[in-house]
Amino acid sequence: MSCSLTMKNISAARNGVTLYNGITLNLSHKEKIAIIGPNGCGKTTLLEMIAGLSLPQSGLLELFHRPMRSLDDFKTVRTMIGYLFQDSDNQFLAPIVEDDVAFSLLAQGISKEEAALKTAMMLQDLGIAHLAKKVVYHLSGGEKKLVALAGVLIAEPKLMLLDEPTNGLDNAMQQKLVAILRKIDKSIIIVSHHREFLESIVDKIYTMTQEGLHGTFNASNPQKSYIWRTYDGHETTL
């Protein structure tokens, strides 16, 4: 199985304070994992390093088998990574929902007609077609999260980094998000405080401490991994 991400002995510091030493993590193709840990332990910092927003102090970071040594190295893999911000407001670039969702497509030079079609389908899939013409900032927290997610999904990234996707979502919205994320057939790293939510999605849950990451297999519902592994775009349960 090919690897989406390899991290070896990664250490990071913020403001001269070491957050952790020796993070080691392997993420295989289409694997879904979760990272949990207390506030301020450096989860967002880790995701930002994977996305190429900052460099680790030391250690080895490989994305799609390519070593990432400088921020320039990330240019080649940037379109393959989707990032969902902890605060949805920070995600948006265009003020109108459909324009923001279509952003990555249009930035890649895809024609307006095709982008419009894909955007409409994406909004339909997430059940937010009625929001298409609204101003993103005028939406509720949950609606914003779905719009932000649509903007990430539409670019069809190979690796998705989701920073606290359940933040501020009610139960119904969380269930909706679980259904969406379980259908997605990609490598995903989710940072969240929400164990119950994570257990219905991921294969493995890592706990972050100053020493590093400790992974445990998610055994709460073994059938689940079976369902998403076989999922290929249709609601078929084998």
Binding site: T79, I81, N90, L93, A107, K112, A116
Partner: peptide, 23 residues
């Protein structure tokens, strides 16, 4: 802080110097 976050969003979402509209 918002400006830094905005800069990150531009980088992550592949900003090419333009905000587009579908309509």
């Amino acid at each position: 802080e918002r400006s830094v976050a905005l800069q990150k969003a531009m980088l992550l979402r592949g900003f090419q110097g333009e905000i587009y509209t579908l309509s």
